[in-house]
């Protein structure tokens, strides 16, 4: 590991490697670029949403090395070597949806769809964490994802559906 971030040809930029939805990338970044802005504005992965940009809504939730985090508060340069899974990386290569995506459609767990990618990433991590066994625990551990359309009962139902079917955990 370098003692100092490697100096770059372009001033202020820092080169990192980041695996995004299974694909390794080398990126030269300005240190103030957040993971969210990197995904949305530089990599064109607009499925991850910006709902507040301050960790107050959860719309930007992604899986960072398998853990759910608010990508708006993560500086991209600090994620050197990490692996990120976004909503675009959940379905299988043949287009088969992740069980959580299917459950969200079947339970009508969204309306406008804007918080949905964050909700789904969060829900997948919730199952992986295995700290929620009943509706109270699901509700509490999904409270970092605000849905202004108010689809909460259906979100809980979608998660319960995947739990009941023993749906596969996060990729």
């Amino acid at each position: 590991m370098p003692t100092q971030a490697t100096p770059q040809a372009e001033p202020d930029r820092v080169t990192i490697t980041l695996t995004v939805n299974g694909k390794p990338r080398s990126l030269a970044l300005e240190p103030w670029t957040t993971l969210l802005d990197l995904l949305r504005e530089e990599l064109g992965l607009t499925g991850t949403k910006k709902g507040c940009d301050h960790g107050q809504c959860g719309a930007c939730t992604v899986l960072l090395d398998g853990r759910r985090v608010n990508s708006c508060l993560a500086l991209a340069v600090m994620q050197d070597g990490a692996s990120v899974t976004t909503i675009e990386g959940l379905a299988a290569a043949d287009g088969t949806l992740h069980p959580m995506q299917t459950a969200f459609i079947e339970q009508d767990a969204f309306q406008c769809g804007y918080c949905t990618p964050g909700q789904i990433c969060s829900a997948i991590a919730l199952l992986e964490e295995d700290h929620a066994q009943n509706p109270d625990e699901i509700r509490e551990l999904m409270s970092g994802n605000i849905c202004r359309c108010g689809a909460y009962p259906n979100i809980v139902a979608a998660i319960e559906q995947v739990m009941a079917s023993g749906g596969e955990p996060a990729p």
């Binding site: 759910r68 985090v69 608010n70 969060s122 964490e129 551990l141 970092g144």
Partner: peptide
């Protein structure tokens, strides 16, 4: 405190 996402980070 906070949310699972924030607690992870």
């Amino acid at each position: 405190g906070a949310s699972p996402q924030l607690r992870n980070a």
